[in-house]
Amino acid sequence: MAAETASVPATSAPAETERLRLAKAAIRRGKLRTRWLLLSPALLTIVLVGLLPLSIILVYSFLEPGTYGGVRWVFSTDAYVQFLFERDLFEDTLTFNPAYLEIFWRSVELALLSTVGSLLIGFPTAYFIATRPPSRRNLWLFLITLPFWTNLLIRTFAMMLILRDEGVINIILMKLGLIDQPLVLIYTDGAVFLGLVYSYLPFMVLPIYAALEKLDFRLVEAAYDLYATRGKVLRHVILPVAKPGLVAGCILVFVPGLGAYITPELLGGGKSLMIGNMIAIQFGNSRNWPFGSAASLILMAIVLVALLVYVRYAGRRRGHG
């Protein structure tokens, strides 16, 4: 590791002798080799067990649906056409059909909202943990993740017990005489939002904590001594350090949030489709594997573009540190 990170002094090119140039190239090659060596276990696993199946999906998306699920080996682009257009079964004309786009948009909206929600709660929580005495930090981390060692379904059922008409909140409020009709809390968009924020909170807190923990609070203090305002301290000292964690957290909440459907179904009442279950029923009741495959590739393309944009942006900022 030390050899890899030892930096080569950057002298200007003209003064450089041929030998030095060669040596620098060798070091760079060596660094590159180490780097790929370190990357290979993760990449190999994902390529073999993640990307290989993905190519199966790609192939599926260009085939025709089998009669009872599966695929027939006939080339077709119908799956992609179906995403935006509706083919009239009798006249073979195409009309624009926004239904799937609407479903996509609902999921994107929900994922965005839950990202913002968990950010608003997650950042202060992570900050709080990072400022505890070192011996306490792991305990806090444990306390944050412990509820998630029970099962998601069980937790969601427990939330339903709290939110429903005859649930904990309504019973308490009625007993206190604050209301005489139960509040409608469950099977609403609010309940879904709450449920998603709840499910994804650790995905936000832990990365931010991991980044913030390296913050040297003497810097913050110094900044404050130099008459920086609270807002300036936050913007110029704390946020830059937290940024990698914030970005990681947002990705870990937003992307799985896009595909989420168990929580929205249980807490939202299941009257509206999410991308996740729209795709899932293509592999079930609807027996249209090619369309399910195509829809998920479209979903992936959207996420991929967003990620690449982020890497570009982050890369420019990082420069040669």
Partner: peptide, 11 residues
């Protein structure tokens, strides 16, 4: 056809 009705119902 059912699938279309269903998607439309739940969109």
């Amino acid at each position: 056809l059912y699938n279309r009705i269903w998607t439309n119902l739940k969109k």
